[in-house]
Nucleic acid binder design. Structure first.
Lengths: 356, 356
DNA sequence: AACCCTTATTCAAACGTTTGAACCTCTTGA
DNA sequence: TCAAGAGGTTCAAACGTTTGAATAAGGGTT
């Protein structure tokens, strides 16, 4: 069929096949307003020919001419972090009804890849960009180019409003508070805390929330039971960190009946670490995580956790992005804001009521 | 800077800025062969202007003119299945050095989405397509259009060589055999088996491998200990199936000391199900899974499993795809084959030596 | 002084669409 | 008989690149 150099069926092929001009065919197939004036018989003929030949409009030619790519870049720092996937799916579901194509890229926690993909997003003329919480992001010099090209940007999991970037985060302080309060309500008093790594913005507010809950209950947190995760090199280092800290915790010979872990993977790590000393979860020690990623639900016992509404956050990010594009189109400006979404306690088997 | 309608910086902008023609600028920036003849001073000037203005070539215009998109479609049936991500990352790593842009799409096990994305891949003029094991794929009528447009296709996790589609699978029979043999070697004799759902191609060969191992050891499999997963509606139904089957297994009052689960999520489900009856893994019952997905490594105890070399498989799929594109370009044909990759036993805590 | 070669740059056509304007051919009403 | 309108279709320019061919200016060689 397609005797073209490119090997693709073009409008011209269809036009020839039904002995019409390219214009008419284009008008019919793209359902332009003018297509009302095209005789129904012609319309039919064109559509049939197109289907028969297997014609699909060339997005490149179309976007070039229309000066719109109908594309939104989605840059995830690492898809193998189970945290990313629900966000991505939320984003997808958010842009799909608006007829945007999500240009999904996975930087695999590699700096070079991140920059490479960022450049591609620019070259592909993405009309917006949604970034999933990457620490690299702030440093990239391509950011300036994005701004020069007037691409609206949203970031999930960081606050970059000071750089005119829409930002979405979970209310970490509230989350930390919920976690701690729950353990206290269950009757735990000697509670170990694993703080997040220094360089993560989430660490501090979660810790603040934990202290607030303790204060509110009039309970002192034993400083010897407070630990800190080292930096996160890859998606699994949270788990490994958890294992190690559990061992340190045991070595410290302090007594404790519960652990607030920085996130779910850390919680899973702690569970593994405690197992080595034959300490059973939840009978001997309760554990609570944060995020509610998939592996937390699949382990036995399931990890009680503070859920981030990830799909919903992705959806909102997508919404903001498409709104910003629309606003920019019609010359208006779109407000850059910081949204906090509300975390929620999910009770599972890793926590249990405690009486000394 | 960019006073264009499109809001983007174009070659023309750069050309004006350094008082040269568009051609010269293009030649310099795209490092065309002719750029040798361009005076070094001019080159320098052009590069600087481009950088200063934040110029990035328009992929649409470029692809249109070059008649190449340098893009490969990657269609995953559901990213929230932890099975997909390592494959995707392997594919990424495979196409990246060849300078292709992976167009990653996640069908979220939804038929409409699958078709939608397939159409987009066609319209985006992807030069190749890599599909991750989707049962929907065989049915789609867009397949014919892909063929009309001469797009080479590879599929991971299915054998579609009869439809001229390169196929990559793990050696399921070998995998099943490895799993069963390992349990037998550990001394287990009363082994329950959870077969995969009927509609999955992997189910039958794994079961065959399991039987082969049993026969080789002269051990009979008790039919009352053989179960079958119902169809998989979503990535989590393996887990839920596992929980239910564990309950049925307990209700059957048969004695058993080990379970071969169809995959890791099923294994995790079984672990959860047994817990309800206070049966401990691995002390009272060993469990072995299949795939080696992330949650299997994170649970406590870790799930012993048969590993599929997913990253490597993704890499090979990518390699085949880029090779096929190259071949097609130079008019040659590329052989359509079926590759089997070799699974590997990963020993973790969920299995243990058994003596009656 | 005519020739060719080299170096440095530009012309202009093409890629496959879309779309405002133009073009026909009827019909209708004055 | 003519103008106005409507219905149906096409013209041609444009989007931002790339690239084969053309141009121009200098510098040897004969």
């Amino acid at each position: 069929m397609a005797q073209h150099k490119s090997g693709h069926v073009t409008l011209l092929d269809v036009a020839k096949a039904c002995e019409l001009s390219v214009s008419t065919v284009s008008i019919v197939l793209s359902e332009a307003p003018l297509s009302q004036n095209v005789a129904p018989a012609t319309r039919q003929k064109v559509r049939e020919a197109a289907k028969r030949l297997g014609y699909h409009p060339d997005a490149y030619a179309r976007s070039l001419r229309r000066r719109r790519s109908h594309t939104i870049g989605v840059l995830a720092y690492d898809l193998s972090d189970p945290f990313c996937v629900p966000l991505v799916q939320g984003i997808q579901n958010g842009v799909e009804p608006e007829n945007y194509l999500p240009l999904l890229m996975d930087a695999q926690t590699k700096r070079e890849l991140f920059d490479r993909y960022m450049k591609m997003i620019l070259e592909q003329r993405a009309e917006g960009l949604i970034v999933i919480a990457s620490w690299v992001f702030e440093e990239t010099n391509l950011l300036a180019d994005l701004e020069k090209n007037h691409v609206p940007i949203v970031i999930l999991g960081r606050d970059l409003t000071h750089r005119k970037i829409g930002s979405l985060m979970v209310d970490n302080e509230l989350g930390g508070m919920l976690a701690m309060r729950y353990l206290l309500e269950l009757g735990h008093r000697r509670i170990a805390v694993i703080r997040g790594p220094q360089e993560m913005v989430d660490s501090e507010p979660r810790w603040a929330g934990i202290r607030r809950a303790a204060e509110a209950a009039g309970v002192k947190i034993n400083p010897k039971l407070v630990f800190q995760l080292p930096g996160l090199a890859n998606p699994l280092s949270g788990f490994e960190g958890g294992v190690e800290i559990a061992q340190k915790l045991l070595a410290s010979r302090q007594t404790f009946s519960a652990v607030v872990a920085f996130d779910d993977l850390t919680a899973l790590g702690v569970m593994r670490g405690l197992r080595g000393a034959n300490i059973k979860v939840p009978e001997d020690c309760s554990i609570i995580g944060f995020d509610d990623v998939m592996p937390a639900a699949l382990s036995t016992p399931g990890i009680t956790t503070i859920r981030q509404p990830l799909e919903e956050m992705g959806l909102r990010a997508a919404k903001w992005c498409t709104d910003a594009i629309r606003a920019h189109e019609s010359g208006k400006s779109h407000p850059v804001e910081l949204w906090n979404s509300v975390p929620e306690l999910i009770e599972r088997g890793s926590t249990v009521r405690w009486t000394e």
